[in-house]
Amino acid sequence: MVDAGDEVVLWTSQGTYLFAEAKVGSTFRWTKRERVRVDALIGAPFGATFEIRGGALVRAAPRGAATTVEDDGERRDNRWLADDNRAQRLDADDLKRMRRDGASGEAIIDALVAGSDTFAHKTQFAQQKWLRRKQNKYLPWVRVLEPRAATIAAAYFSRGNLLPHRVVLRPDTVAQLVARANARDGAKIITVDHSGGVALAAILERIEPSGKALVPHRGPFEALRRCNLTDLDRRVVCFSLDETPPPQGDSLVLVAKTDPIANLDALLPLLCPSAPIVVYSDTVEPLAAAYAHLQASGLATAILLSETWLRDFQVLPNRTHPTMSMSATGGYLLSATKIVVADAA
């Protein structure tokens, strides 16, 4: 359940993510000019759906299921379609006027269907897709999501173009990162995080309740503020390389904009033997160099340089296919395990 003061993630019918704070009187930016009040979030269960009416969120029935179109048994296709941009008789001014006069989303969609010369000739699948798009636009809704690591990662990834100064991690790469780092309860994980806290959020989720993230810099980790974590000072401990004795880590995670070889040289001595090492980069060359460096050092085994490939599918009767566009790369991961060589017996 959403408590007053919680940070939440909102997933919109247009497929975008927004951040909001569930506080009485608090708002989030919906369009350029429109802000929406979030009061209705407080007390709602995570996963609840809301419509946007009169500048406020209003609790609504769950949405997101496919709209069905009655099959009238008629075969249709687009052989007569002229792509001359004149199929819709309503123009932008008509729509603006309807909205100003307070027309409901349903009324606008009905008018768009009536104003379309081509709607009736579309196949049922095409009609359904067309209607769903219009509904997502003119009857917008949002779903409130718990800010767990996967949600935070997805939200930051979808807004990655707004963060040119950050490492932008694809969520499935974060998943590989925390798995290969063997992040678990009680672990002390040395973490360099230039992703704004997205990697740290995933690490903290795995090492609770007694693990710690040891960080050699103070941030910025603004993603952590969106996770409703208490006790951050205990979980994320800042250290300096000059400390004596130096801290010791059970794993090393590097998600840095800086040179991996220099970072490895500085931080490898802090790792206990058998500690996993995971290094991220959005280009492969620095990791290829770091791979060779680790191999030559004799300090690591099970060295692996890889990338993951991720494809989402639309699954609908007779319309199952990979989604039309996919992310070309989730970046690259170099992983290894620290070793020491036994003295010759």
């Binding site: 499935d172 492969v284 290829a288 692996l304 340089l305 890889s306 990338e307 993951t308 490939w309 991720l310 494809r311 989402d312 599918f313 639309q314 699954v315 990979p322 690259y332």
Partner: peptide
Amino acid sequence: RTLEVRQRDF
């Protein structure tokens, strides 16, 4: 959500 993941090693 339906998805597929693969790994490519270098």
